[in-house]
Amino acid sequence: MSALLEVRDLVVDIPLAAGMLHPVRGVTFSVERGETLCIVGESGCGKSLTALALMALLPRRAKRTAAKLTLSDTDLLAARDDELADLRGSRMAMIFQEPMTSLNPAYTIGNQLEEMLLRHRRATRAEARERALFLLEKVGITAAASRLSQYPHQLSGGLRQRVMIAMALMCGPDLMIADEPTTALDVTIQAQILLLLGQLRREFGMGLVLITHDLGIVARIADRVAVMYAGQIVEHGSAAEVFREPRHPYTRGLMACIPVPGKVARGSPLGSIPGMVPSLIGSMSGCSFRSRCEFRRDQCEAEIALVEDATGHATRCILSVDEVTAAT
């Protein structure tokens, strides 16, 4: 059986006044049904544009190419605009970071939830309402019936994000893409939303692509992790493997940066990654991390491939596993 989502060599180019911007440079991954893939990276690494490219929601002037882009047996590259519009919200749904800007302030919650079914399925208003009620309760909203007639501004941030999740689930999608779904929320609410996403993914057998910059979230929810840097995946593997033995110097650097209670002595300096992300405008060559890398060598000037070992743990680095682990 083929994977639910297959992405091969996804490239996004955006022409700017200063030259061609290459925010996504050949990204390859796949997601199975019921699996959670976390794409992790810092701002500007191309993780959000990757998500938008999957949904075909890129800005108009952006150019998307890929060797393969399929959602089970549907070829997303060949799909026409109207076919894509039918797929979005129906078989693949997306949740964004800021729930206030992704809900329409002029319509009630009920209206916006029901619209999903009315648009994509031949449902009656009553059926749509029933489904909306069912899902609002599913995502843990109390007094769901009274919420249907409320407007987004009447809800708290946590509730709005729950409404967004319910909305994404209305048509029972195969694939859910969540772009920083909890970044705007408090830690307590964050835990609840993530718990909910995990439960729903199991219950509905969805594939979940979760985009985040927070390694804590990744560790707790991901089956597999893809670490992105400067538009490329630099490390990829099962969450357990990547956290047990991070191999790319960037991944190792990221992990050293976060204060972990009990692991880093209080008040002692945290690790840091010197330098800055390279410009993604114009032509680029070689390892994009080499300007900040302590292990930099001459070979890093050449293009480096993402090499996978027998366990499926892949790294885009010339260092061997032993060399990396010996260094720390």
Binding site: V187, A191, L194, L195, A219, P261
Partner: peptide, 13 residues
């Protein structure tokens, strides 16, 4: 509720 980067612990309820 603090999510430390320790895989396998899951999301606290």
């Amino acid at each position: 509720s603090v999510l430390t980067p320790e895989p396998g612990l899951g999301i606290p309820d």
